[in-house]
Design a protein around this nucleic acid. Structure first.
Lengths: 189, 189
DNA sequence: CATGACTAGTCACTTCCATGACTATCATGG
DNA sequence: CCATGATAGTCATGGAAGTGACTAGTCATG
């Protein structure tokens, strides 16, 4: 039941089309949650059925019509009661960690490749988040924005995303260094 | 299909009973993956059926018999081919982030409670991981252990877990400070 | 001596999430 | 002129994960 609330939370700041939402959740630009387009569309349908969002058809020329969604009062109430309840603990759940856990029993070269790929992805994402933060705060310094800015929710979650990706990158590089060093100092093992 | 490999990876360093495994995955002590006991037992049954793990009954007195599992050669091969393949990108997926995303539209007090709870959990987990790391490296320094130690896989994943939980705690405290400051400087908004 | 916590699991049910395939139209580039 | 990529979605299916309930014996605590 969290995708529901993630969609509601993403819709809080202005109307979005299903397509925009779906893209944001797919790329993880809505960095606080991830979902495939099909899931997002399905969830929007359900949310509309429950009266938590309202959609309106927008006729476009030169491209398919779209539907813009906004959160209803009932939807906002729903989101508020969600926030009042305890958040489930979050766990890392990552293929790459499983692979590193097995590091001593598998091919080091392949593992270093995986780590290098991940480090690159993390760097890209961190860059994206950094730009996003810059866009949100505009001319202001971070401190000013967090004190006086209109909506800080998205900014704060983006900061978490940034820190997470930087943590990922640093850890990947650290593991690569360790594995390389071991390969050098104890070649056959 | 990742729980499979997580279980295999957890079993690499010595035999474990289903119960021990299940507990580790439930508490997240196997900090690189999380799963409920029922999932773990079910997965063990499947893995045994596929010949990737082998179980042996151990008769105990004073308590129920247990089954100890170890990874077979086929299981190791399976895990190696898993590690050779690209890891899926990982996404944060966290109720608390959804709640913070909605921060500007919900009750600040309740949100600060959630953040405080989470910060406490994160601190506990970080402490646990720190102790675990200490146990693994024993008398050696971290540098020595990572260079000369026998199995570094579990150590490295534990380091990631530690960094993640510290990141969580810092972020929670940061968000709390921001929200408190805003509540003070712009009370009705 | 009853209550709850620990060991060691199993069964059933539901909901969530992932994946692939499919329909359209329009704009852009080679 | 054809391929691609973006816009804007829908449908179907399977696998993964979450939830609750249940068995059954042992040990410690009040």
């Amino acid at each position: 039941m969290a995708l529901r609330h993630a969609v509601l939370a993403a819709l809080l700041d202005g109307e979005l089309s299903g397509y925009e939402l779906a893209k944001a959740f797919d790329l993880g630009v809505a960095n606080f949650w991830h979902a495939r387009p099909q899931q997002v569309y399905a969830e929007l349908t359900r949310l509309e059925g429950d009266g938590f969002v309202a959609g309106r058809e927008v006729v476009q020329e030169g491209r398919p019509n779209k539907r813009l969604f906004r959160v209803t009062d009932a939807g906002l109430a729903q989101l508020q009661s969600f926030t009042a309840a305890a958040a489930k603990p979050s766990f890392i759940r990552d293929d790459l960690l499983v692979q590193v856990q097995a590091a001593d029993h598998v091919d080091t070269g392949a593992l270093i490749e995986r780590l290098t790929e991940r480090a690159a992805v993390a760097r890209e994402k961190a860059g994206l988040f950094t730009r996003l933060l810059g866009t949100m705060r505009g001319e202001r310094t971070e401190e000013e924005f967090l004190r006086d800015g209109g909506r800080v929710g998205p900014y704060l979650t983006c900061q978490r995303g940034l820190a997470f990706e930087e943590g990922n990158r640093e850890w990947c590089e650290h593991v690569i260094a360790v594995l390389r060093d071991r390969a050098r100092t104890r070649p056959d093992d």
